Simulated assay, not measured.
Amino acid sequence: MAWQREGYTAHEGEVGVLLADGSEPGPVYFDTGSSGSFHESTDWWVYDGTFGAPLAARMRARCSCGWRADISYPLDWDQVQRREPHDYDTSAPAGDWEAHLDDVEARTVPLPAEVSDLLHRLRQRLEGLVDDAPLAALKAVNELESIAASVGPSAAFLAVHGDRIPWRRIAEGLGTTEPDARSRLHRYEYRR
């Protein structure tokens, strides 16, 4: 089960594992029959030492952006229910990932207070419209897309070509990874 925070799609977190020697194992492959394809998994509970899988000794938080927690926790396989591995307590790694996301969020470019408040109130109002007047909600979404199409290209162009903000800083300011920032700004810049 992956951890997610709204607005940070490039930062999906999950439990990762370490072997006894401290290394992070690669995916586990499962032969599901006579076909030429194999199922692969990096879910923490598959590293239980059965069916040729390596035996994990510790768990830690990891993020799709490449971040790995410095802290790891013992993995007690006697306490893991084979049929219900999600019942095992992974709250410590989850807390580490939350702290990572708090750090990512703290480094993003701050929005002016009035814009932040306006966006918050707009979201609340649109969520209410979904149930009360779905067509009005869709009309508002269309208007938001129109605003994004008129503002996004100029902002993207100026950030990259005018102000020449380094991609590392653009990614940090948006709370994402460099590949995601490049893709996002490319979409914005050529949206017209």
Rank of each mutant, 00 (worst) to 15 (best):
L119C: 06
I147N: 11
R192A: 15
A148I: 09
V28L: 02
L111C: 04
A149W: 14
S35L: 00
D96W: 05
I165H: 00
S150W: 08
A171Q: 04
T42V: 06
S41H: 02
R107T: 09
P112S: 03
C65N: 07
D102L: 05
E172P: 02
S35Y: 02
W45F: 09
E14N: 11
S64G: 12
Y47W: 01
A56H: 04
A171M: 02
R164K: 14
F157Q: 08
A57D: 07
S34T: 10
A53Q: 00
T90G: 06
H120W: 12
G95Q: 07
W45L: 07
A61C: 03
W167H: 08
E189V: 12
G52E: 00
V28K: 04
T176H: 06
Y190L: 14
G173Y: 05
A92H: 04
H161S: 12
A106E: 06
T32I: 14
A136L: 09
V109C: 12
L174R: 06
P134K: 08
P25E: 03
T108R: 10
E24W: 13
L119V: 07
T176M: 07
L18T: 10
Y47H: 02
A92K: 07
L126R: 09
D102A: 03
E114Q: 15
R187H: 15
R164E: 14
D132Y: 10
S72D: 11
T50F: 00
I71E: 15
M59Y: 05
L126F: 07
D131E: 13
A94H: 09
I170P: 02
W167E: 06
P27V: 00
L126T: 08
K139E: 15
S183H: 12
V15R: 05
E6F: 15
A171I: 05
Y29Q: 00
R192S: 12
E143K: 15
E145R: 13
D21I: 04
G162A: 09
V46N: 01
R5H: 00
D117G: 14
K139W: 10
W44T: 06
P112L: 00
D70H: 14
V104R: 04
T90I: 10
S37T: 12
E12C: 14
Q81A: 15
H120C: 12
D87Y: 12
R184S: 05
L144G: 08
D43I: 05
S146A: 13
F51A: 15
H39R: 09
R123T: 14
M59C: 02
L111D: 03
G95E: 08
H39G: 06
C63V: 03
L129P: 03
P54Q: 04
S116A: 13
V141N: 08
L122D: 15
H86T: 09
R168E: 15
L75C: 06
R191T: 03
M1G: 10
G162C: 08
A99I: 13
A99F: 10
D21G: 04
L158I: 14
G36N: 11
V104F: 05
N142F: 03
L138Q: 11
T42K: 00
R187Y: 13
H100W: 03
Q124V: 05
A61G: 08
S35H: 07
S150R: 11
A20C: 00
L135M: 12
E145V: 13
E24P: 08
E114M: 10
I147L: 14
D76P: 03
E84Q: 11
A149D: 13
D103E: 14
P112V: 03
L18H: 11
L75E: 02
F30Q: 10
S91M: 06
A155Q: 11
A69H: 10
G7T: 05
